[in-house]
Design a protein around this nucleic acid. Structure first.
Lengths: 235, 235
DNA sequence: CGCGCCCTTGAGAGTAGTCAAGCTTTGTGG
DNA sequence: CCACAAAGCTTGACTACTCTCAAGGGCGCG
């Protein structure tokens, strides 16, 4: 495992967290960071783990999921490269509230809580960037709460697909491909429904040619249709 | 409207945001703050408003609610004294994503975005405190997402009552009184259900003597019963 | 070839939403 | 101080969305 820090995959400057920093400050951040390469299907951390760190993904994708005491599971979010994760417990609980598992080979960078605090106190843009990141996340979470509370499964799935295609989509000849390995179960867990309902809704869409699934990769062909379902209040 | 800064109601030192600051830093924070007294049923801000500020409540209570383009409404949370609110849009959108309305006479303090950024860069504990506050909030939001996705209305209401009694409860002879003016509609909007379902569930509990409502104030008499409903997976 | 994983589909049941009506409490003005 | 209006709450009947249970099909891998 040879890690060459000049490898573009290990370039920290692309991270929003470190935006606006001087070269010296960046160097400090790099020095305090731990960079790891993780193979597919690795646990990055488990719900309940102590020794919390702030993580960011330089390469690959990660699924964050939470399970309740009753066993019910929800996908909190999918992380793609450039995003931070595992940040919720920092400075509070010191326990991860969810599991993180790699969905592909990943390059992950992380800082200890104290290193991050030091970095923030020496370079306030880090703190502001961090606040912006989790503020946005909080907004997304609240939007999701509203969706769960007020929309039907069909609409929620449509919204989920739109969001995924915005965050992890790549334009192809056929439409927009979501660059994440997504099982029906994942989609269900994102939307707070069951595998069965998700299947019942997606299959007709697929039959109608609105989207295709190949090898756990989803391509949206007629995004306008999906958008119409998402908007439809119920008529 | 005479504001005496020595009035205990205007004491900023109790705010978590300013915890761990030197007297000089506190004075700086005070100088940059805007303190207002707001009568009951006042809009502090409206969804979509620009010119975002960071708010904290020194006295009273505030309801934060969000309405979607379809008109459906969700209560994001209730704020009681000592808590911050309206912080989600800072450094990002510059638009409030929700409405805030006072439920009682309030004393509110707020900082402009730039003032807060300055304060944070000069005193890093402010940044860390802030991150802790919204991190905890994000955790709560994710827990709520899981609840909405996996639990039945009855359980969600039970959980909501438990949370409210923890955050805004005062022990009385009869039990724990939630010190917020709560209408059935509010409870419904917290739990993502309808006024009707909330009523159908709460009335039997009230008949059974588990709780009482008087003058929009709810008292939990048999918290153990509520807790049992909250835990019950469905048996 | 057979096993495991993932997905589809059907039937039936139940939770919770909608519609509708009437009741209670609160507040206001004569 | 009473009357009436408005707001909030309860309750019933009906509907329908979504879950659960159950069975079977397709695909890849050992």
């Amino acid at each position: 495992m040879s890690i060459v820090t000049t490898d573009p995959c290990h370039d920290l400057t692309s991270l929003e967290l470190l935006r606006g920093l001087s070269p010296e400050a960046l160097e400090e951040a790099r020095a305090a960071a731990r960079i790891r390469q993780l193979p597919r299907n690795t646990r990055v951390f488990n719900q309940g783990d102590m020794d919390v760190r702030a993580h960011a993904l330089l390469q690959g994708s990660v699924r964050i999921s939470q399970s309740g005491s009753d066993g019910a599971q929800v996908v909190v979010r999918f992380i793609t490269s450039g995003e931070m994760f595992g940040t919720v417990a920092l400075f509070t609980d010191h326990r991860y509230p969810a599991d993180a598992e790699t969905l592909s080979d990943c390059v992950e960078v992380s800082w200890s809580e104290t290193a991050l605090a030091t970095l923030m106190s020496r370079h306030s843009p880090v703190a502001i960037n961090f606040i912006r990141i989790i503020g946005r996340r909080l907004q997304e979470a609240q939007e999701r709460i509203r969706e769960l509370a007020t929309q039907r499964v069909e609409q929620r799935i449509a919204h989920a697909l739109l969001r995924l295609s915005r965050r992890a989509g790549r334009a192809t000849a056929d439409g927009t491909t979501i660059e994440l390995p997504l099982r029906r179960k994942d989609i269900a867990d994102i939307c707070g429904t069951t595998l069965h309902s998700a299947s019942r809704i997606l299959t007709p869409w697929e039959k109608a040619g609105w989207l295709t699934t190949r090898d756990q990769h989803l391509t949206i062909r007629e995004i306008a249709r999906i958008r119409r379902v998402a908007e439809a209040a119920g008529d």
